[in-house]
């Protein structure tokens, strides 16, 4: 890995920023150079949200991901907007519960995962984001428990430490899906 440019996009409230923060922290704990940049409107929920994450062996230049190696689309407007920006040979992860259409491009790897459906079925309706994160780590072959636990400990605030196990379970679900 030299530089990995990740763009996660969806509705506000889906945990887009949190998922990005987890990936950035995991990178940091593995001594990578990282940046995390949110983009969202004035509203707390609803509206569109996206998050640029860069994980690199080199110092990060621009923190804005305009041509992602990996795109996570958690709603249709995000897939419509960013599908064409993914680099050839890159990867698109689609939440197939919320997005019915298929990816039109044939020069990228596509992973369909019914993350929102899986999350509700397993009693963790707010953790579709972490199901997808589990999938990402699996794809990159970086699902090591030590790194995952350490990064989770950093991104989950002290008063929500009880959520750690749920997040872990969600990620395992995603990795196996």
């Amino acid at each position: 890995m030299s530089t990995r440019q990740i763009l996660i996009a969806g509705f506000g409230g889906q945990g887009i920023l949190f998922a990005g923060k987890f990936l950035a922290y995991k990178g940091l704990m593995e001594d990578k150079q990282v940046s995390w940049l949110p983009s969202y409107g004035p509203e707390m929920r609803g509206g569109t949200a996206s998050c640029s994450v860069i994980i690199s062996d080199e110092p990060v230049g621009s923190p804005i991901v305009s041509t992602p190696d990996l795109l996570v689309a958690m709603n249709l407007p995000s897939l419509d907007k960013y599908e064409s920006s993914v680099v050839p040979g890159g990867t698109i992860i689609v939440d197939s519960t919320l997005i019915e259409r298929k990816v039109a491009r044939d020069d990228v790897n596509v992973v369909y995962i019914p993350a929102t459906g899986l999350a509700s079925e397993n009693g963790m309706p707010t953790l579709a984001n972490m199901i997808i994160v589990g999938k990402i780590l699996k794809l990159y072959d970086e699902f090591n428990m030590e790194g995952v636990n350490a990064a989770l400990g950093k991104v989950i605030s002290a008063r929500h430490q009880d959520m750690l196990q749920f997040n872990l379970k969600a990620m395992e679900l995603g990795a196996d899906a």
Binding site: K21, A24, V34, S35, W36, L37, V60
Partner: peptide, 9 residues
């Protein structure tokens, strides 16, 4: 806004 909102180590 970018410098304010972005996270870096």
């Amino acid at each position: 806004g970018t410098m304010g909102q972005m996270m870096e180590p």
